[in-house]
Design a protein around this nucleic acid. Sequence first.
DNA 1: GATTTTTTTACGGGAAACCGTAAAGAAGTG
DNA 2: CACTTCTTTACGGTTTCCCGTAAAAAAATC
Lengths: 223, 223
Amino acid sequence: MFKKVLIVEDLDSIIETVRHTLEKLSIKNIQYAKYCDEALIKIKKAQIEKDPFELLISDLSFKEDHRENKLKNGEELIRTVKNIQPEIKTIVFSIEDKSFKIHSLFEILEINAYVIKGRNSIKDLKKAVQETYNNKTKILLPETSTNSVNKNSLIEIESYDIELLKLLSNGYIINEIAIKFKNLQIQPNSNSSIEKRINKLKTYFKANNNVHLIAITKDLGLI
Amino acid sequence: MFKKVLIVEDLDSIIETVRHTLEKLSIKNIQYAKYCDEALIKIKKAQIEKDPFELLISDLSFKEDHRENKLKNGEELIRTVKNIQPEIKTIVFSIEDKSFKIHSLFEILEINAYVIKGRNSIKDLKKAVQETYNNKTKILLPETSTNSVNKNSLIEIESYDIELLKLLSNGYIINEIAIKFKNLQIQPNSNSSIEKRINKLKTYFKANNNVHLIAITKDLGLI
DNA sequence: GATTTTTTTACGGGAAACCGTAAAGAAGTG
DNA sequence: CACTTCTTTACGGTTTCCCGTAAAAAAATC
């Protein structure tokens, strides 16, 4: 079993339970960090001291408080950590159950497992740690991930669309978005094409108008 | 100290810690429920058996799963419980930190304490339980509730505004909203007045247009 | 009950969204 | 390179939003 594990989680009420779960798996060296920046420092230090962490268990979203943090969420943390220590194993432990986000974490960050916080997640987390240790990958627990959008149906939404939706939600009008895209050399960037793209998104998400579209995509966690 | 307490929380990773915290306070009879409906049944049963719960510690939001639940969140649970057992003490333990919501819970449901889940919430929860036992009311922990909207500034947003924003976010156009309000006999209900009200909200939230307004109010958790 | 004040409604004009059609351009194919 | 296909852009008409002004109605004040 793993010898050295780092838990990154802001809620103290969850840290305790995770630590307890890992102790039962006979993991001796269990450390934790309540901030992503703090976690990165610990990982760097362990690496320098030639005693690196073997497993990183991280949440995705973190509360903001008085402390200024460079890394704002678990996604950024994992990306940074994988740059300096590519062989580290990673498990995401989050309440987020939107499949397109989970999917992107496996694809882009190549995480080893994803455990959705829920009514029986302690058992799931335990299983995820064991299977990750046995070099199994792409574990998604619980497998019956309900009330989230179909994975396949969201694959076709590109970063262009996300950017477009974000600008809309920030109060930009189409003409302003066109100018912005031209400046950033993002194509297509004509008013007409942008309108068409928004139209596609409205059909896709069954939205009556732009307001409705933003409400839906915000609920989905897309933006 | 309390003798009989019920914890209502869907995340098993949090239940364990709360239970542990209460045990340290020498509370002997600690029970839990992962669903609101389940919690209500336990409370009713305890009352019938003349051994009622003295304290209810509940989360606000619960994940939906295969089980059908009449009570969808902690707010509905507390409202129902207070109807059948008005003297019960209640503590809300939630990650929600939007002050207008917290405020309404104190005002409308007359909860005894509110603890925001965070990096030091175990200590806060312990304190809240002790102070609630000593008949203190309106305990809000942590006291320095940051990054939430000013309480006073949100008081003037009425249920009319919320209803209006919800209809907008559901894709209704102004004319449709006017018709709906006329049917429901909600006033004002003319296109012009509704426009004016939206305008007020846009000024208030510094929104450039309706899309922006819905994005902002969704982020605030207002709708 | 006449007055001021506030709220609600009506209306009109310009801006932006909405929606279809068609032209221009880019990419792929034989 | 001629042809098809797909993408991007242009444009015009209709609807809705947006914003101001003014009238009508309701409420408050004296």
